[in-house]
Each structure stands twice: as C-alpha cells, then as structure tokens.
C-alpha cells in the first residue's frame, strides 16, 4: 500500500466512525514500549519513519486542536493511519 498521504483523511475518519465496531475489525498500529528499559535498537525499521510522518500529517488534518497527551485523539488518528496504510508497501516488515 502506498505511503503517500491520503488526500482526505477527514473522510477516512468519518468512515471509521460510521462503522459498526461491535462487528467489524478495527486496524491499529500499536506502539511497543518496555517500562523495564529501552528496547534494543530495531535494525529493520521498514516503513516506520514514513508512518511516523504520516501520523503527524493526519493529526494536523483531523485533530489539529489535540494536546500531545490526548490519547483519544491519538487513537482516532492511528485508526486513520491504519485504515489507509496497514499493508506494507513492498511486503517487508
């Protein structure tokens, strides 16, 4: 799937919010965190840097007012990201 930003992320968010979530799958990208200490550096970051950039792009588009720690807004933005860019672009991690 392309890593080009979707032209209308607001429409994707609206579509996500219309879905019957009790019976439809909700794709997400979960951040992995280790509270015991840093996870060793990940050699194969794959499309991670592009996904991070897209998260910022979509946040600015659909939740521009959100505080950095607004987890509900973050979840909404990540559902947009995952709905558009879930499948890897070239089959690698």
């Amino acid at each position: 799937m392309s890593l080009t930003p979707h032209p209308d992320p607001g429409a994707i968010l609206a579509e996500n919010e219309r879905r019957a979530l009790e019976r439809e799958g909700i794709p997400m990208f979960l951040a992995l965190e280790d509270l015991r200490g840093p996870i060793p550096p990940v050699a194969d970051r794959a499309e991670g840097p592009a996904l991070a950039e897209l998260t910022g792009t979509y946040a600015a588009a659909v939740r521009p007012e959100a505080e950095d720690g607004d987890l509900a807004a973050l979840a909404s933005v990540v559902t947009v990201l995952a709905r558009v860019h879930f499948f890897p672009e070239n089959g690698t991690a």
Binding site: I26, F29, A31, L32, E33, I39, G48, P49, L51, F86
Partner: peptide, 10 residues
C-alpha cells in the same frame, strides 16, 4: 513508529 517499535493489530 519511527524507531520500528510497532505492531499491527486488528
């Protein structure tokens, strides 16, 4: 995400 620490779930 940028550091490659992520996982896909549905």
């Amino acid at each position: 995400l940028a550091e490659g620490r992520y996982l896909r779930v549905v």
